[in-house]
Simulated scan of single mutants.
Amino acid sequence: MLQLVDFVVRNRFFLVFVLLEVLSVWLIVRSNSYWGATYFNTSNYYVAKTLAFSNSAKEYTRLDEVNADLAKENARLNALVTKLNQTNSADAPAGYVPDSAFAARFTYTVAKVVDNETNKTNNVLTIDKGTADGIQPGMGVISATGVVGKVRFCSENFSLVTSILHSQFMVSSKLVRSNEIGYAKWPGKDPNFIDMVDVSKYTKVYKGDSAVTSDQNSVFPPGIMVGKVESIAVHPNQTFYNIILRLSTDFRNLSYVYVVQNQQLGEQENLKARTIERK
């Protein structure tokens, strides 16, 4: 308290000066309409700027929460879109009505990427969901923009995913415009590009065409983006194109993914196993 009194005493002339200046400004604003309007307009401008900055700072601190909410909403929408695509398939023959359980067989679980590789020949990534969340080896993994990979190993709280950027990983893919089916397989070089193999050179292929997961796939729902045709080449003594796709997923900036569960996959595999046994 004594220090405060000492400060006031030592700076009394300056404090009186500041007080008189404030009083003068207040009198001018009160008695002159022009300066009054100017003052209030200026003060409102700076108050608005301050509030905008404060709100931006608060929103920035909540980005993780907002992203998590958006990822959950995307998972719900993915399930809805997949069901609608299966129910109203564009290439289905007239009169075909899919079983409702078949149309709704894919479910999605949101997961966050906690570790990711892109610079190796065989890349993997780790997500923060495991067996405690219903994740099992063999499930597909996608992002908001396209195919990511396939679950390989699981612990209680984490899962290791074989990335599409893996030399042993292939996914059945279809070119949208030509309806030609092939396989997307990474050559082990640039993480932005992947090869599409086994596409007949007698089919017309268009640069810029989209490659999506095909219907001949039990791990991924049909219609999930893989990439777009970047270049097309063919050698005279070959019967297949050499197609390079630009991947739709940016693996260097991967944050949230969706683990895809085919609820009828077990039934399909059991049926195949019985067929093999009888052979």
Rank of each mutant, 00 (worst) to 15 (best):
N67P: 01
Q216M: 05
P221H: 00
T239H: 15
Q216F: 03
S172W: 01
Q264G: 05
V219W: 01
T239W: 15
F169D: 13
R62C: 03
V47D: 10
G188F: 14
N11S: 11
N237A: 06
F153V: 04
V110E: 04
Q268Y: 02
N179S: 13
A92C: 05
V161S: 13
V114T: 10
V234T: 11
R274Y: 06
Q261H: 12
I127G: 03
F102L: 14
E180V: 12
F40K: 00
V114W: 08
R278M: 04
Y96A: 07
V161A: 15
I181C: 10
E267M: 15
N179R: 14
V113W: 07
I164A: 11
L63I: 08
Y34Q: 09
Y45R: 12
T203I: 15
D209P: 07
K150E: 13
T145C: 10
T61A: 12
V25P: 00
A79V: 03
Q263D: 07
E269F: 04
I164F: 08
V171E: 12
L27S: 03
T249R: 06
V226D: 03
T126L: 03
V226Y: 01
T162P: 01
K272W: 13
L165Q: 04
T126Q: 01
T87Y: 06
G140D: 01
T249K: 06
E267W: 10
F40Y: 00
S210R: 13
G140C: 00
L247V: 06
A68Y: 10
K49S: 00
D99Y: 09
R30W: 07
Q263S: 07
A57W: 13
N78K: 09
K58F: 07
L84S: 08
D6H: 09
V81H: 04
V9R: 12
Y108S: 02
K112L: 07
K185W: 08
I164Y: 05
I224L: 14
Y45L: 11
V260G: 06
P236C: 06
K272G: 10
N74Y: 07
N67D: 12
F14H: 07
V66D: 10
M170A: 11
Q261L: 12
N192D: 12
V259G: 03
S155N: 14
P98L: 09
G95P: 15
N242K: 15
D99N: 15
T213V: 14
N74P: 00
D99V: 09
A57E: 10
L70N: 11
R274C: 05
K83S: 07
K120I: 10
G223D: 08
Y206N: 11
S255K: 09
V161N: 12
